[in-house]
C-alpha cells in the first residue's frame, strides 16, 4: 500500500538528537526510493525503443509513445487491449458489487447481532484464504468445465466474488463493530426497520470503511492473474492476461511489455490516489491497522 500513503512531515521526536533524526530521514528516503525504483524503471522502459530497452540500462534516450500505441493496437484474433479492458472493467465492477451486497448483511449479523460461535464463523471465512489457490485450481477447473463456464467472464465474476468475500466480511465486520450500540438501540426505539437501520443509521457512519473495502476488492480483482490465465486464457480475459500476452517468443519485447504493464497499473494507481484520504481513514478505522 506504500504508494497510497503520504509520509508525514519529518519532525524530530522530542529529545532525539537532530543528527540521528537526519540520518533516519535519509535512510527512510533511500529505502523508499529502493522500493520505488522498479516501478520507475518500468515506466521509463515503456517510453524506449525496443533496442534501447534491451541494451545496457540508460536514462539517456529519446522518449517515444510508439510502444503504447503498438501494444494497444488491435491485432486480429488475439486478445486486444480494448477487449481486455472492457472485460476487466465489467468483471471487477460486477464482482465488487456482488461482494458488497453479500458482505454488508453478513458483517451486520456478525458485528451487531452475533450468533453463537460467531468467532468460529469469522475464522472459517478467513481460513478459506489459507488454501494455496494452486491446490484447488484443479477441482475448480473441472467444475467450470462441466458447467460450460471455461473461457467466460462469468466464471471470473463468480471466483472474484468468492475470493474477495471473506476479506470484505472481515473488514466490514470490524467497521460495523465500531458503530456505538446505543445508536442501533436508539434506531430500534425510533421504530426503524432492519433495512432502514442499515441504510439510514449504520452505512452513513461506516461509509469510509465501505469505500476502503470496495476499493481493495476492486484492486484485488483487477490484479488477479492466476484464475484468469487458468480458466479464461483467451478472448474473454482480463488485463493481466493481456499484459502476459505481450511476451513474445521471438524478438525484443521488454519496452512493449513495460508499456503494457504501465497501462495495467494506471487505473489502480489512479483509483488509489483519488480515494487515498478516505482509504487511509477507512483502513485506520478497522481491520488493517
Amino acid at each position: 500500500m506504500a504508494i497510497f500513503t503520504r509520509a508525514p512531515k519529518a519532525e524530530p521526536i522530542l529529545g532525539q538528537n537532530r543528527a540521528v533524526a537526519m540520518v533516519l530521514g535519509v535512510l527512510t528516503w533511500i529505502i523508499g526510493l529502493l522500493f520505488f525504483f522498479p516501478l520507475f524503471w518500468l515506466v521509463v522502459n515503456g517510453f524506449k525503443e525496443e533496442s534501447v530497452a534491451s541494451s545496457s540500462p540508460t536514462l539517456n534516450f529519446d522518449p517515444t509513445l510508439d510502444r503504447f500505441s503498438e501494444v494497444t493496437e488491435d491485432s486480429g484474433g488475439l486478445l486486444s487491449f480494448t477487449e481486455a479492458f472492457g472485460n476487466s472493467f465489467w468483471i471487477v465492477l460486477i464482482s465488487t458489487v456482488l461482494v458488497m451486497v453479500l458482505a454488508i448483511p453478513a458483517a451486520y449479523a456478525l458485528a451487531i447481532r452475533p450468533m453463537r460461535k460467531w468467532r468460529d464463523i469469522l475464522f472459517f471465512f478467513i481460513s478459506t484464504k489459507f488454501l494455496p489457490i494452486v491446490g484447488i485450481i484443479m477441482p475448480i477447473w473441472i467444475i467450470a468445465r462441466d458447467l460450460d463456464l471455461l473461457g467466460t467472464r462469468t466464471v471470473l465474476v463468480v471466483l472474484y466474488t468468492a475470493m474477495n468475500l471473506p476479506l470484505a466480511v472481515w473488514m466490514l465486520r470490524s467497521f460495523f463493530a465500531e458503530v456505538p450500540k446505543e445508536l442501533i438501540e436508539a434506531s430500534q426505539i425510533d421504530g426503524c426497520s432492519l433495512l432502514g437501520q442499515i441504510r439510514q443509521v449504520i452505512l452513513p457512519i461506516v461509509a469510509p470503511g465501505v469505500a476502503a473495502t470496495a476499493l481493495l476488492c476492486v484492486i484485488f480483482a483487477w490484479n488477479e492473474f492466476f484464475f484468469a490465465i487458468q480458466l479464461n486464457p483467451t478472448g474473454a480475459s482480463t488485463i493481466p492476461v493481456w499484459v502476459n500476452s505481450q511476451q513474445k517468443f521471438q524478438g525484443q519485447f521488454l519496452a512493449g511489455l513495460s508499456a503494457a504493464s504501465v497501462l495495467a497499473t494506471l487505473p489502480v494507481v489512479l483509483a488509489g490516489w483519488v480515494a487515498q484520504k478516505r482509504m487511509i481513514r477507512g483502513l485506520a478505522m478497522g481491520a488493517i491497522k
Binding site: 456505538p180 446505543e182 438501540e185 436508539a186 430500534q188 426505539i189 426503524c192 439510514q200 452513513p204 457512519i205
Partner: peptide
C-alpha cells in the same frame, strides 16, 4: 414486544445522536 411497539422514548447516556 419489540422496542418500537412500546411507544417509549429513551435518552441515552452518550445521547446516541445519529452523526450523519
Amino acid at each position: 414486544k419489540p422496542p418500537q411497539d412500546r411507544d417509549i422514548a429513551m435518552v441515552f447516556q452518550n445521547y446516541a445522536l445519529y452523526p450523519s
